[in-house]
């Protein structure tokens, strides 16, 4: 296995985990840092391809202007929206206070 060259730091791993709202232990930070460095090392092969004159492909299909008419359709039956909710109050979803 070649040496990881990517400079991904523990701080960056913490930042990314935070952006993704993933709880992570200090041990995991190190574990993921090393694994991600290794993966990124392999991914850097991407830069072998000369893409200076190449457009990006975000959508594989050639279809354009796919739209629907402004028509109402039935919503979910009563309570179906909330049936899977871990916490609810009356017909609302209930969440904890947002602030830390």
């Amino acid at each position: 296995m070649p040496e990881p060259t990517s400079e991904l730091s523990s701080r960056e791993v913490e930042h990314v985990a935070r952006l993704a709202r993933l709880g992570i232990t200090p041990d995991e930070v190190l574990k993921y840092r090393d694994q991600l460095r290794n993966i990124l090392h392999h991914i850097e092969a991407l830069n072998r391809a000369d893409t200076s004159k190449v457009p990006a492909t975000a959508h594989p299909l050639e279809e354009r202007n796919v739209m629907r008419e402004d028509r109402r359709e039935p919503c979910l039956p009563a309570d179906a929206a909330l049936r899977n909710a871990p916490s609810r109050e009356d017909s609302y979803f209930k969440v904890k206070a947002i602030q830390e």
Partner: peptide, 11 residues
Amino acid sequence: IHEAQSSLVNF
């Protein structure tokens, strides 16, 4: 808002 223990969500 700041003192609320919880919020209710309506989609």
